[in-house]
Each structure stands twice: as C-alpha cells, then as structure tokens.
C-alpha cells in the first residue's frame, strides 16, 4: 500500500522567515496523529500546505499520490479549519451547516447537528461575535462532520472549557472508531490529548524532530535525575536533549534507552531513571532547538 501522505523536502519561507525547513515524512492511512510543538513551531504552516491552502517554497506534498493544490478530487478528501478561520460577513452556524454539504462529499448533517447541540453553539448568532471557545467548537463540528478521509485539526483546544474538551474527545474517539480515517491534530497542550494518539510528529523551529508510533516512545528517550555533579558526569558524551538544573539538582532527558552498564553507574551515584511521556519529549525537543538558537 502506498503511503497516504508524503512530504519530500518541503520548505516554506515567508520573506526572510523560514517557517518550515526541508521537511520530509510519510504517514500511513488510518491514524490519529498528534502534531506537537511549541507556538510558532510551524504546525499551522504544515497543515495549510497539506490541505492545499498554501504552496511550498520548495519540495513536494502528495496526498494519495496527488499534489493537493488546486486538485479538486484530492481537496474533496481533506478538511482543514484553521485556528484563525474567517467566515463570510454575518455568517451564522446555521449558514455553515446549510452550505457545508454542498462542498463536502462525506458530510453527515445529523452528526453535525448533534455536535452543535453538544457544544451548545448558538445557531443564529453571527460567528463574528463568537468567543474563542465557540470558534473552536465550530471548527471541530466542521472537522468531525466532514468525515474527510484526511481531517486536519489546528489547535482544536483553544478556549474550550473542560466540559467541551471532554465532549470533543468522546465525539472524536467514537466517530473515528466507527468511521476510520486519518486525523492529524495539532496542539501545544500535549498532556490533554496524549492518550488519543497512535502516532506523534514533533515539530520545532520548522523541522520535524520526531515521527514515531506511540508505542516506540519509551525507547526514544529516558530521564535521569539526581545530584547535579553526578548527573553531569553520568551524561557526559551522551545525547542530552534537555538538561534541567537548580543548584544541587539536575534532570537530564537523554536520547536512546539506558543500557545495563548505565543502570549500574546510575545506581552507584544514586541517580534515578524514569521513562518519558510524550509531553516530556515535546519539552525536551523544544528546549534543544531553543538552546541551539541561543548558541547560534
């Protein structure tokens, strides 16, 4: 089977700013993939390019073997509502629900109505007057009810309260289980959504730093913490992604897995070894590039 989504050497520059820098990766169909990274890491740019809303400065993007830009059959299978989505003047959610089926071939009108009720979004009020959370809810309704084989969700959590977030997760998980498709969900709130993903893409400063199955995470890195001098000595020569210190104490996130020799050495100096969560990895990769940027 060919890969669903293939990016090859994708670079996107805006003037002198490089938002994406030589990004290449592939993604198989049928996954809920977390696109994770700090604000400004390049997540929205990446999603825009995949959705054919933007053009790369260099490189190619293929969805099911086609470049999505201006390719109607491919665009019909992709949905992206951006975090700063604009609607026509005076548009209401009622207007959105009435026009969506004209464009979206997989649209489920009943599901859309249920979602609107579930999020308690007002139907007849101008979208322009919506709060941040309500705008996010409208974006989620469009994204989920589109049932697009490639659904891209850009920061869906912005402004959502706890109830709405909970409702979103239930709707997403159930609907994707019943109507399998590929979802790429970008967020900088990793803890809230970590358990939903079967795959994670970590972006920082316009580069993909990790593209891994969720079950591979424990093998990607680990942390070791203890007295700062001991940790420095212990981690010398290792690939330290992030070193966090206060006077007397240090915690290092190290790429790879701890071998037996390391375990023995760590035990000898009273250092503690722990696995990493996805959130730890995002923090570690984010700070690594930040350190590089400072050094450069």
């Amino acid at each position: 089977m060919t890969d669903h989504l293939v990016l090859d050497g994708v670079t996107r520059r805006f003037g002198s700013h490089t938002a994406l820098d030589d990004v290449s990766f592939t993604l198989a169909a049928g996954s809920i993939c977390g696109l994770l990274g700090r604000n400004g890491a390049g997540k929205t740019t990446l999603l825009s390019l995949i959705a054919g809303q933007d053009l790369p400065s260099a490189g190619t993007i293929h969805v099911n073997g086609h470049s999505p830009f201006e390719h109607a059959p491919t665009l019909a299978g992709i949905n992206l509502v951006r975090d700063n989505q604009r609607y026509p003047d005076d548009f209401t959610v009622g207007n959105v629900l009435s026009i969506a089926p004209r464009f979206l071939p997989h649209w489920d009108a009943d599901f859309a109505k249920r979602l609107v009720a579930g999020f308690r979004v007002p139907l007849n009020q101008s979208v322009k007057k919506f709060s941040r959370g309500q705008l996010s809810a409208v974006a989620i309704v469009l994204g989920l009810a589109s049932r697009a084989p490639l659904t891209l969700m850009d920061e869906p959590y912005l402004g959502l309260d706890v109830n709405a977030r909970r409702y979103f997760h239930e709707a997403l998980v159930r609907d994707v289980a019943e109507h399998p498709r590929t979802v790429i969900l970008s967020t900088h709130h990793v803890e809230e959504s970590e358990s939903l993903f079967d795959r994670v893409l970590i972006v920082d400063s316009g580069r993909i730093l990790l593209n891994a199955d969720i079950d591979e995470i424990p093998e990607i890195a680990f942390t070791v913490s203890g007295r700062d001098d001991a940790i420095r000595e212990l981690t010398a020569g290792l690939d330290v992604l992030r070193l966090h210190t206060v006077p007397g104490l240090a915690s290092a996130t190290i790429r790879g897995s701890a071998d037996d020799a390391f375990l023995v050495r760590a035990e000898a100096v009273g250092a503690r070894i722990q696995g990493v969560s996805v959130a730890d990895l995002v923090t570690a990769f984010g700070s690594e590039s930040a350190a590089e940027a400072v050094a450069a």
């Binding site: 289980a177 019943e178 358990s195 939903l196």
Partner: peptide, 15 residues
Amino acid sequence: ATDLAVFFDLNPATA
C-alpha cells in the same frame, strides 16, 4: 473496544 476508547480517552487502535 470503541466504548473503552471513549471511556478512557484512548486511541481506538490502542484500545
């Protein structure tokens, strides 16, 4: 598996 996924906020494939 779907209900378990919904109940525990898990990816359907994981469940």
